[in-house]
């Protein structure tokens, strides 16, 4: 599976960090959105990713995969992260920055 370079360098930002509250358990996390009162249940992996966004608002698929999987993430790892980012966007949690 080849990963096009544009996807690994997509920049993502969580502008509404202040709106979110996150609680993590080993079996998964719950996320509260103060702006609209909505609750989401996240898998442990997604919860961990969200925690990183709440800590540092801006990431690319690549930097995020590095942080999660270690120094040199495999292309598959980056692809996984990129997909997760896209679904975060559909939940209005993060936004993609223009290139």
């Amino acid at each position: 599976m080849s990963l096009n370079t544009s996807r690994r360098d997509e920049r993502w930002v969580c502008r509404r960090r202040a709106d979110f509250a996150l609680r993590n358990w080993p079996d998964g996390s719950v996320l509260f959105d103060e702006a609209n009162g909505q609750l989401q249940r996240l898998t442990p992996a997604a919860g961990g990713m969200m925690a990183l966004f709440l800590d540092t608002p801006e990431w690319t698929s690549c930097t995020l995969a590095q942080r999660i999987f270690g120094e040199i993430p495999a292309a598959e790892d980056i692809e996984l992260v990129a997909n997760a980012l896209a679904s975060f966007q559909s939940l209005s949690l993060i936004e993609r920055l223009p290139d």
């Binding site: 509250a21 358990w25 998964g28 249940r41 996240l42």
Partner: peptide, 24 residues
């Protein structure tokens, strides 16, 4: 699972949405 228990607890709550973050 606690995260699941949380969601079900919230669903059974009449007014947790009124409490915002402190409620969460």
């Amino acid at each position: 699972a606690k995260s699941e228990g949380f969601m079900q607890l919230a669903e059974n709550s009449f007014n947790q949405n009124v409490h915002g973050r402190p409620g969460f």
